[in-house]
Design a protein around this nucleic acid. Structure first.
Length: 234
RNA sequence: CAGCUAUGUA
């Protein structure tokens, strides 16, 4: 069973969901009974092949086998529905889940953001904290993106402080999301400060800053900044 | 101590 699951997960990772699902079928044909890890890998395969119907079939099997209440599995199911824009389905699963972990909340928040429900995303972010579930760096990226798209600098700054409190600013994805958000909201100064405070080898934050300048019509600043950074490379 | 779910920009 572990070998089959490894094959399914491996192909799903490569974006070869159809191959992965083929292995899933073969495994069932051998009379093997999937466990939670196998189901999650199968769901991931459904995402990469963009097949809602296969995912729904797996959902039925998951209920049959009683894995529905396992947060690890439920999170993956939620993600499937979120990616299809079926937020109601995702919410139903979330609401019936008794053990909501960080990932459950993050999938929900990210689902709201990706589908344009920005206020709901931030509301869920607050609710998550009321329920004493700690956000992680992935949660922060989604929350920051919600602030940026919503145009809410106050919330954005508040979340920035929380990011610092939890030490997530060292994550390149988080710091570049911060820079991006400030740039989008029209705070080039804050964007630059964030950049200067979190220098790293990762180029994404630099790119975010330059693109931000350009989007704000600050082409000269963008150019000067690139020149300045280029000097350090000599 | 086998297989393991969620994140941005372009």
């Amino acid at each position: 069973l572990v070998s089959w699951t490894a094959m399914i997960a491996g192909y799903a990772d490569l974006g070869q969901g159809n191959v992965a699902l083929g292995f899933f079928e073969q495994m069932l044909a051998k009379g093997l009974c999937p466990d939670s890890v196998t189901f999650v890998s199968g769901l991931k395969a459904c995402c990469s092949v963009a097949s809602l119907s296969h995912g729904q079939a797996l959902h039925m099997d998951i209920i049959q086998e009683g894995f529905e209440g396992v947060s690890y599995v439920a999170n993956s199911l939620m993600d499937l529905y979120v990616k299809w824009g079926h937020l109601q389905e995702a919410c139903d699963i979330f609401n019936e889940l008794s053990n909501r972990d960080t990932i459950s909340w993050t999938v929900l928040i990210n689902g709201y953001v990706n589908n344009g429900f920005l206020e709901e995303a931030l509301l869920s972010y607050n609710q998550m904290q009321s329920n004493d579930v700690s956000p992680n760096s992935v949660t922060m990226v989604s929350a920051l993106r919600a602030c940026g798209s919503l145009g809410d600098p106050n919330k954005g700054h508040q979340i920035h402080l929380e990011v610092i409190m939890d030490g997530f600013e060292t994550d390149p994805l988080v710091s570049s999301s911060l820079v991006e958000m400030y740039a989008k909201l029209g705070f080039p100064k804050e964007a630059e400060d964030t950049y200067l405070e979190n220098q790293s080898e990762d180029p994404s934050m630099f790119n975010a800053l330059v693109l931000g300048y350009i989007e704000q019509g600050l082409e000269k600043e963008a150019f000067d900044f690139v020149k300045l950074e280029a000097k350090y490379l000599d």
